[in-house]
Design a protein around this nucleic acid. Structure first.
Lengths: 320, 320
DNA sequence: GCGTTATATATAACGTGTTATGGAGATTCG
DNA sequence: CGAATCTCCATAACACGTTATATATAACGC
């Protein structure tokens, strides 16, 4: 059985580090116990820091890069074991903690009987010298401190690209539209006609079909411009795969579709939809579509589900 | 405030990896939530594995390198969220788990909206490419699988060396002996006389003082050979720092002391001690000392605490 | 000088991993 | 074929980290 966590690489870096840490610390706990020290691996950083100087809880948390409640708990355990003691300081809010003589003796054991062999073993596990690995970890920590993973992900938008209709994308056109139509409504005859025969229903009459592709994901959305007899064009069959929502692919696609419609001399450019499609309507409004009673009157009967009709008004796009 | 965990390097590798993992996964949890997925970061490996094929609990644990109870819990949570379901298999003991349609939809989102940006962010955090770090982690995992940290530490004995008496080691001779004498008994006048004036009491009369040094730790033990008037030599003032017990330094030192005594023509080589020093007496027996009533009779009065007298019998060392 | 705000710590709740152990169904062996 | 054993999973208990929040003391400002 392959190692799924290792296979997926960078995505599971966190899980992998945790797994490794768990294994290392399980062994460390044993080493500590065999050295005759009554403490857990998680206590070692606390003891090591206090071995330098007495500190308050807050300063310990800062020095160890750990949370304050975590430090508090560790110190309580060590106090129960008699390895640390709380001293009175100037500030009655603060708890100044120091090693007891027993704590110092424990640290002497740690320095003599735990750290040297563990350090040698870790070096050996890293192929002779842990330095390079530690350097990489330090660089990773520094990069995270500068800008967190979360911040980087939030600012990361996959690159989007518009793709023209090709015959090999007919299936994508069908599947993407079927997904949203079946999820929100039920397929009408008019729908089936279009998504199964796009060439005959859209392209041959002078319309267009566009796709949006996201980097690494392939085609994630599509929309069609359907020519009327006059210069009227209907924006229709616009959908983005449910899994790819949130990438701004819809906005990118709609902008391209509007530009294409204008290039085709569309007048009016309109669309018919249903009030349940709140997110889509919000997007239409954002890019310049306006609710329009005339459109509803003239074309609204085309779909059973139609209760919203909009017309593109190029002059007043309230782009935020 | 410096980072204590980072400063101590390889010794705290486990703590450091855990800290990093914690930070990474906290961000990952946020990313997952923002993608609209109802799952925890720890669930991702489970979902990813099940996305390949339905599996039993045991096989999942193996594939993920995790414990079986951990997998069971994760699956129960995912089942409660409706992302996985239990199917019936041939073996009624086994629980065959598979993604539900909701689970597959969640995985589609994960593949589209979580993995790509996270992967890019991790690469960026690693300075452009996470590969080298992942390679090092893989090597570390492989080395641990081959021989664990614990096994390496257990087999690792620091190198020991015998050091002859020098005037600058007088303090070490004093401190090491004071530690054990005060810990086990109370200092007698005869003790103080020897440990404070080793040149006059031991060396000038024709005796010897040896030290044992451990790699990286410096002097950790000492012992003296005290010449009588005849060829008799008393092995005395033998001690190893409490913090350095367990390194076999005492055995190493005692072997050297016996060899030195024989080189000096010691006959008899004897020692006086107390039954409370069980560990020491065990060591003396191991290296060839035998309880001896004549020695007790002749020299036993020298120390208040003496109730054990032993004589080295070179022919019958029952070295295990 | 007193009320407000800031700071330091404690507590509670929970996420994620572990080991130890028990119970039910499969398997094996006399 | 039945008893012992093995295998698979569930449960309990605990280690270790977090965030959110409460409480007590300092410090500040009118």
């Amino acid at each position: 059985m392959p190692d799924v966590v290792a296979e997926l690489g960078g995505v599971f870096l966190g899980a992998r580090l945790r797994r490794l840490a768990e294994r290392l610390q399980a062994d460390a706990a044993q080493v500590i116990a065999e050295a005759g020290i009554d403490a857990q691996p998680s206590h070692m950083p606390l003891l090591a820091a206090l071995d330098r100087e007495a500190m308050t809880v807050g300063r310990l948390a800062e020095a160890l890069g750990a949370s304050q409640p975590g430090v508090t708990r560790g110190l309580n355990q060590l106090q129960a074991s008699g390895l640390v003691e709380t001293r009175d300081g100037e500030d009655a809010r603060a708890r100044l903690v120091a090693l007891t003589p027993a704590g110092e003796a424990a640290m002497a054991k740690v320095r003599a009987r735990v750290w040297p062999p563990v350090s040698r073993a870790v070096d050996a596990l890293c192929g002779g010298d842990a330095g390079p690995l530690l350097d990489r970890l330090a660089a990773l920590e520094a990069a995270m401190a500068e800008r967190s993973l979360l911040a980087r992900v939030r600012e990361d938008r996959p690159k989007l690209a518009i793709v023209e209709y090709r015959e090999d994308l007919a299936a994508a056109f069908h599947d993407i539209n079927r997904e949203w139509i079946e999820a929100m409504f039920t397929m009408e005859g008019a729908d089936r006609d279009v998504i199964e025969r796009p060439r005959e229903t859209i392209l041959d009459p002078g319309g267009a079909i566009l796709f949006v592709a996201a980097e690494g994901l392939g085609i994630v959305g599509t929309c069609a411009l359907r020519a009327g007899g006059d210069n009227a064009f209907e924006l229709t069959k616009m959908g983005v795969l449910e899994a790819a929502r949130g990438l701004k692919a819809g906005e990118f696609l709609l902008e391209a579709a509007i530009a294409r419609a204008q290039a085709l001399g569309a007048d009016p450019l309109y669309l018919l939809t249903n009030a349940r499609c709140e997110a889509a309507i919000h997007l239409y409004e954002k890019l310049g579509f306006r609710h329009d009673a005339q459109i509803m009157e003239r074309y609204g009967a085309r779909y059973e589900r139609c209760d919203v009709a909009m017309r593109f008004v190029p002059d007043t796009p309230p782009r935020q």
